[in-house]
Computed example of a mutant assay.
Amino acid sequence: MGLFKQPEYRRFNLKPRYWDPEAEARKEREKRIRTELGLDENGNEYIPDVRASLQREYNKQRSNRPKTGLGYATRLFLILIVILMVAFYLVTYKLDLIMKFF
């Protein structure tokens, strides 16, 4: 963490050239049916891994959250600096104006 925004890493995004949507839909349907019947890929009994699925869902939701950490802190810091500069100016150059209120 610091005052300046860190550069993001480059990501490698490989898109497949050949894609058969029917075959993918068929595999997805078979997988869903096997899950509903309680079978795994080999036909054995399927035992759901609840913890792993919760972790995957949490990580997915976490990655979709807006990133507000550094922007909020920087904005707050700048506002504080401006307020302190105005207060310093008023105390040093306009002290008589301030004393009229008291």
Results as ranks from 00 to 15, higher is better:
Met1Arg: 12
Leu3Thr: 05
Phe4Ser: 06
Gln6Ile: 14
Pro7Tyr: 06
Tyr9Ile: 14
Arg10Met: 11
Phe12Gly: 08
Phe12Arg: 08
Lys15Gln: 07
Pro16Met: 03
Pro16Lys: 10
Tyr18Ser: 06
Trp19Lys: 11
Asp20Trp: 07
Glu22Trp: 05
Glu22Gln: 08
Ala23Lys: 14
Ala23Cys: 06
Ala25Phe: 07
Arg26Leu: 13
Lys27Pro: 00
Glu28Pro: 01
Arg29Ile: 03
Glu30Val: 07
Lys31Tyr: 04
Thr35Lys: 14
Thr35Ile: 14
Leu37Gln: 08
Leu39Lys: 07
Asp40Ala: 02
Asp40Trp: 02
Glu41Ser: 01
Glu41Tyr: 00
Gly43Tyr: 02
Tyr46Met: 01
Ile47Asp: 01
Ile47Thr: 00
Pro48Ala: 05
Val50Arg: 10
Arg51Asn: 13
Ala52Leu: 15
Leu54Arg: 08
Leu54Ala: 06
Gln55Met: 15
Arg56His: 03
Glu57Pro: 00
Glu57Asp: 08
Glu57Thr: 08
Tyr58His: 08
Tyr58Leu: 10
Lys60Met: 05
Lys60Gly: 00
Gln61Leu: 06
Arg62Lys: 12
Ser63Thr: 00
Asn64Lys: 14
Asn64Phe: 06
Lys67Ile: 04
Thr68Leu: 13
Thr74His: 04
Arg75Gly: 15
Leu80Tyr: 14
Leu80Asn: 12
Leu80Val: 14
Ile81Glu: 02
Val82Leu: 11
Val82Tyr: 01
Leu84Gly: 15
Val86Arg: 08
Val86Tyr: 07
Ala87Met: 12
Phe88Ser: 09
Leu90Trp: 05
Lys94Leu: 05
Phe101Ala: 10
Phe102Thr: 12
